[in-house]
Nucleic acid binder design. Structure first.
Length: 457
RNA sequence: GCCAAGGUAGCUUAGAGGCGAAGCGGUGGACUGCAGAUCCAUUACACGUGAGUUCAAAUCUCACCCUUGGCUCCA
């Protein structure tokens, strides 16, 4: 299995640090507002990655942070006149609900920044002790000049960095030095050896990953926009603190989601939250939409594209229902089995080849559609046995499991309301009786009788 | 300016030296009491432009055009 590594800009054979265990960390949301469909794209993608790694036999520990202390939260809380912690908890809960509806279930543990202050402080202290950080009257800063490899992920040189967009802080040694600890005199704040304040943005992730994974682990993921400066800062912090390199073996980044060709932003008025989306479309459809583009490519959101996804997904489900129905009454063995087995083998193999190639879900989906077409063609005049049908269904189950679709329930979902059904039957029987179709109306009565439903005319 | 991702059929997406690919859509058939599902054909001269390398280029090289994003808030 190959995975594209942002660090090397190449697909590399995936090898976990442990024979069967994989440690996966993905940057989580800042919970100051509802998550948008760009977040959904990223988290669906990594959910698929986790599912596929597990299918390949790995035991994956998928860890995600929740940024529940941050300027945006503080500002929003002040605007609304509410407690920042309550605000963060509220949007964290809404985030979890959104993820559930999208079928994103792979995260094993969510770590809140505010619950890891001890670890954050310890890590900052280590950086100070080793000379990678310094204290000013405003806070504690990472000293970029002590980490010459800064920029290795984003391929930037320190001297190229255009820093005049941010306000200069004359207390910092270099303009690019970033805050590890920000001193504050009003809430929310936490005690630290450098006085009360709160952690900088980048430090929570490395504190959390060190806590659960140690200084080195397998995969770190996030959106493309986090490469610089966030992930660059994480590398600088962790590799300096531990003296071990690399912090992670594989850096994976998801492409952006655009809306009708433009970046999604509040000012453009094309900002779509997951909740807005789910009012009109099932999570599964959005999931299909996301997975029909490669995770690293930009994806363009539009209602038309969602309609297409709805129909494409329908085609797959139709096939699964067809196979399930056939398998109920198929013979145990048959002469056409070899042929169906060959079809299955061919496209199944193709499917996994594409998944092994840096999670190429669009190509893997194409293999599934090819399988469907071949099966439909063959089913016109050939009959597979139950055994073969079940093998095919098993593949579709694996497929659903990897992609996070819910095909299994197609047959087990109970009919909405039996009384409604009965009413339809009785209405039709009444019409038959009016037409004096006694034979059919009697058949309905007797068959309902067999089900212990008695009709009294 | 620097960094990055792109431009592939009507639309949405894969591919990355040699079989013109998947879905959706359009058109015409087959099947069908009607509808749906499905199948076949077609849409089809698919690869931004111009050169170059090669027996062979959508794919490699160079130049250029266009789109989007990032450059210390960002999934």
């Amino acid at each position: 299995m190959n995975i594209y590594n942002t660090m090397t800009q190449e697909k590399e054979p995936f090898k976990a640090r442990h024979p069967v265990r994989v440690k996966l960390f993905v940057c989580g949301p800042t919970v100051y507002d509802d998550a948008h469909i760009g977040h959904a794209r990223t988290y669906i993608s990594f959910d698929m990655v986790k599912r596929y790694l597990e299918y390949k036999g790995y035991s994956v520990f998928y860890l995600q942070n929740i940024t529940d202390i941050d300027d945006k939260i503080i500002v929003r809380a002040e605007e609304l006149g509410v407690d920042p912690e309550k605000l963060a908890r509220k949007f964290e809960k809404r985030y979890q609900e959104d993820m559930e509806k999208l079928g994103v279930s792979g995260v094993n543990f969510h770590a809140r920044a505010t619950e890891h202050l001890d670890k954050i402080i310890t890590q900052i202290q280590t950086l100070l002790d080793k000379g990678f950080a310094y204290e000013t009257q405003k806070g504690v800063y990472f000293d970029e000049s002590q980490f010459p490899e800064y920029g290795k992920l984003s391929r930037r040189k320190l001297e190229d960095l255009n820093v005049h967009r941010i306000q200069q802080d004359e207390h910092k040694k270099n303009p690019g030095d970033f805050a590890l600890w920000k001193k504050r005199d009003h809430k929310p704040l936490w005690d630290s050896p450098w006085g009360p304040g709160r952690p900088g943005w980048h430090i929570e992730d490395t504190a959390i990953t060190e806590e659960y994974f140690g200084p080195q682990y397998d995969i770190h993921g996030g959106g493309l926009d986090l490469i610089f400066p966030h992930h660059e800062a994480e590398i600088a912090q962790m590799e300096s603190a531990s003296g071990k390199s690399p912090m992670v073996n594989f850096w994976m980044h998801t492409g952006f989601l655009n809306v009708s060709g433009e970046k999604m932003s509040k000012s453009l008025g094309n900002f779509i939250t997951i909740r807005d989306l789910l009012e009109n479309y099932p999570g599964e459809v959005f999931r299909f939409f996301v997975l029909s583009t490669h995770y690293r490519s930009p994806i363009d959101f539009s209602l038309k594209a969602l309609e297409q996804s709805t129909k494409s997904l329908e085609r797959i489900k139709t096939m699964v229902v067809k196979l399930q129905k056939l398998s109920l009454k198929a013979p145990l063995e048959g002469p056409d089995d070899v042929m169906f087995q060959d079809i299955l083998n061919e496209y199944q193999e193709e499917f996994f080849q594409h998944m092994d190639n840096d999670f190429n879900t669009p190509q893997a989906l194409a293999a599934v559609f090819n399988l469907i077409r071949q099966l439909n063609k063959s089913l016109e005049n050939k009959n597979p046995s139950q055994k073969t049908l079940n093998k095919i269904l098993r593949f579709f189950n694996d497929f659903a499991e990897i992609m996070g679709f819910q095909f299994k329930q197609i047959f087990t979902t109970p009919v909405t309301n039996p009384d409604d059904l009965l009413e339809i039957i009785l209405d039709i029987r009444e019409k038959l009786r009016q037409k004096k179709e006694w034979e059919l109306s009697d058949e309905i009565r007797s068959r309902l009788n067999n089900l212990d439903i008695e009709i009294q005319d």
